[in-house]
């Protein structure tokens, strides 16, 4: 039995799709911002904090990088309330994304900081800055600039991975797809269209990141 493709059913649900797009973009925007902050803090902690903090940061990075995002999400959303830490689906999703991106971002930013010439640190400290000041004022920005393309790719990867937040009932784009699928049973058309939307979103996010790189970080890269 071969049915013909029918995309018309989708048009009735354009609001659902639009909401899904909005949520997916909201998640990645907030998640990426928090994730970057986590990355920078972790790199800072690894440089300036006592050994036990450094060990904690390293364990965090390794643990997150070596477990699936899905389990991180479920642990946060279903597991943590047992410790009295409850949050909404949206918050859980954002926290999970930030934690996930934070771990990868830490490694990426750290590589950037390591690549920064020793002379930079020395020049800064010889101008009377503390090493801490040198980190924030001299070393960090070039490191971010240098690693921005890698960070951008990682952010897009996290966005692709965020499709699973639909599993804790966050109404993202994938949730919209599943919802429409369950109503219309036109699985192929829906997942096809939503996949295409993801491609467009990824391209948009990449473009936005590139512009941010140019304007905020002044990476001087040609778009």
């Amino acid at each position: 039995m071969i049915q013909s493709f029918d995309f018309s059913a989708l048009s009735d649900y354009s609001d659902v799709v639009r909401h899904g797009v909005y949520i997916t973009l909201l998640l990645i925007t907030v998640g990426a911002a928090l994730g970057l902050a986590v990355s920078i803090l972790c790199v800072w902690a690894r440089l300036f904090c006592p050994a036990w903090v450094r060990i904690a940061v390293t364990s965090y990075v390794e643990f997150v990088r070596n477990t699936p995002f899905l389990i991180q999400l479920f642990f946060i959303f279903f597991g943590l309330p047992q410790l009295g830490v409850s949050m909404s689906e949206m918050t859980a999703a954002i926290v999970a994304m930030a934690i996930n991106l934070g771990a990868y971002g830490t490694e990426i930013v750290r590589a950037g900081v390591q690549a920064t010439a020793k002379g930079q640190w020395e020049a800064a400290t010889s101008l009377g800055m503390t090493r801490n000041q040198a980190f924030w004022r001299v070393v960090l920005m070039p490191a971010l600039q240098k690693m921005w393309p890698t960070l951008s790719s990682q952010i897009v990867i996290v966005m692709m991975g965020s499709a699973v937040v639909s599993q804790i009932a966050v109404q993202d784009l994938t949730f919209a797809a599943n919802f429409i699928q369950s109503r219309t049973f036109r699985a192929f058309e829906i997942y096809f269209v939503v996949t295409a939307i993801y491609i467009v979103l990824a391209a948009l996010v990449r473009l936005a990141l590139r512009l941010i790189g140019r304007w905020v970080l002044a990476t001087g890269e040609v778009p």
């Binding site: 991975g161 499709a163 699973v164 797809a177 699985a187 192929f188 997942y191 096809f192 996949t195 993801y198």
Partner: peptide
């Protein structure tokens, strides 16, 4: 997303 590929 891999999840979309899987659903498809």
């Amino acid at each position: 997303p891999l999840l979309m590929q899987l659903f498809l």
